[in-house]
């Protein structure tokens, strides 16, 4: 009995599937005369609900069965966009303009860093009294006078180093 029922269900299933597909085709034929749906599909595709996307897809399937020379540019574009446009898995990882954005952001960050650095330098207190050429040269003289490191260092014969002078200018 259950076997029979399974068989009956199996027999009914393709019928219902076929009925569904014919009704879908019917919907398509009712839509195929309204042109604007395909006109700018690039703009509207992303916001179309899945059911309408399916409708458009099926409509395009029917359209592409004609002679391709009779297709309008809109239909051709729509067919190409729906199949291979930048949506779904073909969405570009970096949308157009990303390069400029990244470049501008980097420039901004570098400018900000330079600004912070300049601000910190501008607001810093003056260098200590020891940080001047005169003071440091005097320190060298003092070390030489008291014969500091006389074998290889500052008070040795023929010493060529800078001694205690560390200021650049």
């Amino acid at each position: 009995m259950s076997l029979l029922r399974v068989a009956a269900v199996r027999a009914a299933a393709p019928l219902s599937a076929r009925a569904a597909s014919t009704s879908a085709v019917h919907v398509v034929s009712s839509r195929s005369n309204d042109g604007p749906a395909l006109a700018n599909i690039e703009a509207s595709w992303a916001t179309l609900p899945a059911s309408e996307q399916l409708e458009v897809y099926q409509q395009l399937e029917q359209v592409q069965k004609q002679d391709w020379k009779q297709l309008s540019t809109d239909e051709k574009k729509a067919a190409y966009y729906v199949s291979f446009g930048p949506h779904g898995p073909r969405t570009p990882v970096n949308p157009p303009g990303t390069g400029i954005k990244v470049f501008a952001g980097t420039l901004g960050a570098v400018a900000l860093a330079l600004g912070l650095f300049g601000l910190a330098r501008a607001r810093a207190p003056a260098p200590p009294a020891t940080w001047s050429r005169e003071y440091q040269e005097e320190s060298t003289e003092y070390l030489k006078k008291q014969r500091s490191n006389p074998i290889s260092g500052i008070a040795s014969e023929g010493y060529k180093g800078k001694g205690m002078v560390m200021v650049d200018n």
């Binding site: 592409q64 391709w68 297709l71 051709k76 190409y80």
Partner: peptide, 15 residues
């Protein structure tokens, strides 16, 4: 692609 009625694929082949 003409046989399977897919215009988009034809364009894609040239691409």
């Amino acid at each position: 692609s003409r046989k399977v009625n897919d215009y988009a694929t034809a364009v894609r082949i040239l691409e």
